[in-house]
């Protein structure tokens, strides 16, 4: 499916949930409201789009932007060469968005990673714990306001030397 057809089709399906669309050189990019995410996912998984793979899920922190955090999703398809990037700008104070674990089980760890490093909450996630950092770590280190050289206490030894 052509980039233009894909974007136009999704614009029609989502109506005012779409904030913007662009045909970037690599992937078509769609910017949507957080409320429209679940509807978007339901749409892209069905015909004629059939984007049935969640390739990647990550986050950006730009303190100068109006919506400070942007969660970025990459979708792909097993059936067609189509790909799609979806950007969801979130509110900076308590960033939260719906979880995609009910659609793709692999979203669970990706969302845990974003929660761990950026502090974005995913509503409906079955087990939203830290993934990479140890329990007891304070703050979210990939946020721009996390001090670069801040050191935190290490987790205690389970077996001492």
């Amino acid at each position: 499916m052509e980039k233009k057809t894909l974007l136009t089709g999704l614009r029609d399906a989502l109506a005012d949930g779409v904030l913007g669309a662009a045909e970037s050189p690599d992937l078509p990019v769609l910017t949507i409201r957080p409320e429209a995410l679940v509807l978007l996912v339901r749409t892209v998984r069905r015909d004629p789009f059939r984007l049935d793979v969640l390739l990647d899920l990550t986050c950006l922190d730009d303190p100068s932007a109006a919506g400070r955090f942007t969660v970025v999703y990459h979708f792909a398809s097993f059936l067609t060469p189509a790909r799609l990037r979806v950007k969801v700008p979130l509110d900076g104070d308590e960033p939260a968005v719906d979880s995609l674990t009910s659609f793709w089980p692999n979203a669970a760890w990706l969302e845990r990673e974003v929660y761990d490093l950026f502090g974005v909450r995913f509503r409906g996630h079955p087990d939203l714990r830290r993934l990479l950092l140890h329990e007891g770590f304070e703050g979210h280190p990939l946020r721009k306001d996390y001090p670069l050289r801040r050191r935190q206490p290490r987790p205690p030894d389970e077996v001492g030397p």
Binding site: L133, P155, D157, E158, V159, G160, P161
Partner: peptide
């Protein structure tokens, strides 16, 4: 990594 530090100490202790 900080998360690996207890593992390294355990290995050394063993």
């Amino acid at each position: 990594n900080e998360k690996l530090a207890p593992v390294l100490r355990t290995v050394y202790g063993q």
